[in-house]
Design a protein around this nucleic acid. Structure first.
Length: 435
RNA sequence: CGGGGCGUAGCACAGCCUGGUAGUGCGCCUGCUUUGGGAGCAGGAGGUCGGAGGUUCGAAUCCUCUCGCCCCGACCA
């Protein structure tokens, strides 16, 4: 994308309504624009990040054996009347009436709908287990939305729902998702820590929150430093095998949010391993048994011919929230520092002197080498303005091309994450960028 | 849902108390100069002062109602 043609509205000043760093940077770097309280439009750069995050989530869900579908945003009220949650959910649920005066709602989650859909398919234990997910916009009419997309009313969520014949089977599925989540966040360059959680309104008795560590996170967390030593990507998990040892590793060390802080257990952690940090919840997994399958009338024939009510679980990842969380975890005073895996584009090519034949030629050559993955700053602005915008937008690489270097075919390559920069020949720069 | 604050140009704000020509900075347009970390000078464009009603000769300013947004708290992917 050439900046002279791009829809990338960056702001020099900080918008008054934005309080936290990710919200400010998302507005300043032209990722989103607010349309009403807690509701945002995604502009090109933001949408590209959102799509990348979504794709990583998708790949890891698929790898763990879940299958993608797409359920609607609008749901009929009667599904929720059947589960009993229509009244329980209260004002957080956005209720709508259609032209026939039928009660509808904008889905805040999909347990009822997936159970209803699955009921029409599953008749035998041979139809189990299944793990079905979708990535869809949700709406929860929060009393006080805030912090940009971190706590919006409309948000993009990946939600998976599993159906198993037995409790043991459901626990295996739970472990599959547990491991998939660790990998998902690790691929985005985030440190995610699973923590025991309350089950909340979704119900059930086995649940973990996944909290990513970020200096500017909204809540304080306490954990055993041992948890930071393990790289979830170090080895590929065997999802069909026994995942218990892996899950045990992640659950045997202390980790809790401030609300769940257990001072006695915390005191047991060796002082040198005590880590106090700030975190953001980006995922939550639940096992809740037959809480929905029973009232929704889902049952299958078991091996012995008797009807069995499947054991269910649900597994959420806040996809749009992750975009904000990624910025909270990766930024400096000048702007965003996108990790490679989720950057909207790979590099900024900064032409310091558009119109200079050598600069133009070198820039165009580099630009052509990364089709669709480079931003070319061909604006006639001053160098300072271009550097400032490039740092703000935070692409992993900056290729700075000025008249002095260009005359000798030199490219200055800057790594946004570390600030390292070096002057290289075109070939060496290409080698570095392609590595 | 309780408490507080703010709506004036694309953005950030002043003006309001004490009614009388709608302003400043950034951004934008044109020209000249400048050119490796958000340039300088000159000229220019851009406003239903959130909306409705009221008071007044006259309302951004005073009064009433209303809509929207933000912050603190309780609640949440």
């Amino acid at each position: 994308m050439r900046l002279t043609r791009a829809f990338l509205p960056t702001l020099k000043e900080i918008p008054a309504e934005a309080q936290i760093v990710s919200h400010r940077l998302m507005l300043r770097a032209g990722l989103i624009r607010q349309t009403s309280a807690g509701i945002y439009a995604w502009l090109p750069a933001g949408l590209r990040v959102l799509r990348k995050v979504e794709q990583i989530v998708r790949e890891e869900q698929d790898r763990a054996g879940a299958q993608e579908i797409l359920m609607p945003t609008i749901q009929p009220a009667d599904l929720w009347q059947r589960s009993g949650r229509y009244d329980d959910y209260g004002k957080e649920m956005l209720r709508i009436r259609d032209r026939h005066d039928r009660e509808m709602l904008f889905g805040p989650t999909n347990e009822e709908m997936i159970t209803d859909i699955f009921r029409g398919y599953a008749t035998s234990y041979r139809d189990l287990p299944r793990n079905i997910y979708h990535i869809q916009w949700k709406f929860r009419d929060e009393v006080r939305p805030r912090f940009g997309v971190m706590r919006g009313r409309e948000f993009l969520m990946k939600d998976a729902y599993s159906f198993d014949l037995t409790k043991e089977g459901a626990e295996h599925t739970y472990r599959q998702m547990f491991v998939a989540y660790l990998r998902t966040f690790a691929r985005m360059g985030l440190k995610a820590i699973p923590m025991q959680a309350d089950t909340g309104p979704i119900g059930g008795n086995l649940s973990h929150e996944f909290i990513i560590l970020a200096e500017t996170g909204e809540s304080e967390v306490f954990l055993d430093g041992k948890l930071l030593e393990h790289d979830p990507l170090a080895e590929a998990p065997d999802y069909d095998g026994d995942l218990t040892p892996l899950v045990d590793f992640w659950t045997k060390y202390y980790a809790a949010t401030e609300e769940k802080q257990d001072l006695e257990a915390w005191a047991q952690v060796p002082t040198e391993r005590k880590v106090t940090a700030r975190g953001i919840e980006v995922g939550h997994i639940f096992h809740f048994g037959t809480k929905y399958s029973a009232p929704m009338g889902l049952s299958v024939a078991g091996p012995d011919g008797t009807q069995v009510i499947p054991e269910m679980g649900s597994y959420g990842i806040g996809v749009s929230r992750l975009v904000a969380a990624l910025i909270e975890a990766n930024h400096d005073e000048n702007g965003i520092k996108w990790p490679d895996a989720v950057a909207p584009w790979k590099l900024s090519i900064i032409n310091l002197k558009p119109g200079d034949a050598a600069c133009d030629a070198l820039c165009e050559k580099l630009y052509a080498a990364f089709p669709g993955d480079a931003l070319l700053d061909d604006r006639p602005d001053r160098a300072g303005a271009k550097f400032a915008d490039a740092d703000l937008m935070g692409l992993p690489w900056q290729a700075i091309i000025g008249p002095r270097g260009a005359a000798n075919g030199k490219v200055e390559l800057k790594r946004r994450m570390t600030g390292e920069r070096e002057e290289l020949s075109y070939e060496d720069a290409m080698a570095k960028l392609s590595a």
